[in-house]
Design a protein around this nucleic acid. Structure first.
Lengths: 140, 140
DNA sequence: CTATTACCCTACAAAGTTTATAGACTTTAT
DNA sequence: ATAAAGTCTATAAACTTTGTAGGGTAATAG
């Protein structure tokens, strides 16, 4: 299941996408609009900034803004960043790979192959859906 | 990610599938063979029993045994039982459905639709793979 | 230059979940 | 009866998620 952090990230991103013309937007504005704890949201936006998704401006008139186009920010990127691995097993994860403790050979592990398939089908969707696809719906 | 509980369940089920001819099998035998805490495994097997997957016999000569054929036990069933929802959002879950707090209409929620798609693609795989498909590989 | 604004950072606490342990109880075969 | 085996309840340890608090730091307006 997606964590609240991840859902908040999508809420914030779609809000920023819907208000791009306003330039930099205050954390507190997003927090109020989407009813998210402001301090909690801060750390989420910071993660998104470090990942190159958002930019920020300090000082009076500052705030956060999209640094990429909404249609360039895939759901996969956001989920990996805030939620962690998309795969169901570490040995199948592209971005968080870890060897299975006692698995001698991934090529002959049936579970490995099945989980690869699940991962690929999931990625096929979330790599091709973007923040732009979230804009326009009333809610997430 | 799949929890240890879920992985243990798959290990235990494939062990039982591979040793069906031996009849009832001791918890401790499975625990030793798969290196799982015996007490922890107990509760897992009990869950599987309550779900109608396993049967058990108490007393001397007792143990656990498959009550369904390995090819009838889908991965989806085991995952739902031990890991929880397969869907990424409660409002998209078939077995653990919950309404989104503030979503007025699922039919117009883009996120809802995308997550439905992810769920369906995942289910298409794990509803059609069974414990039988795990048997034969060295590991899970 | 200086006060304000708002991002940035660290620490920690509360809550929940997962994993694991302990021990008593019940049932069954011999 | 007795030993063997599953069942049940309670609880603790470890970890993750979520949220709070407070101050530090950089940028901007005037």
């Amino acid at each position: 299941m997606l964590s609240k952090k991840t859902k908040y990230a999508f809420h914030a991103l779609s809000y920023l996408a819907e208000n791009q013309e306003k330039g930099a937007i205050l954390i507190q504005e997003i927090a109020a609009a989407k009813k998210i704890s402001q301090k909690f949201l801060e750390s989420i936006l910071l993660d998104l900034k470090k990942a190159g998704v958002l930019g920020s401006k300090k000082g009076k008139g500052g705030g956060y803004y999209l640094i990429k186009k909404p249609e360039e920010i895939t759901l996969a990127k956001v989920i990996r960043l805030l939620n962690g691995p998309i795969a169901w097993l570490p040995c199948v994860s592209l971005n968080y790979y870890e060897k299975c403790g006692d698995c001698p050979d991934e090529a002959t592990c049936n579970m490995h192959l099945i989980m690869c398939e699940v991962r690929d089908q999931t990625l096929r969707i979330v790599e091709n859906k973007t923040v732009q696809d979230l804009v326009g719906s009333k809610q997430l």
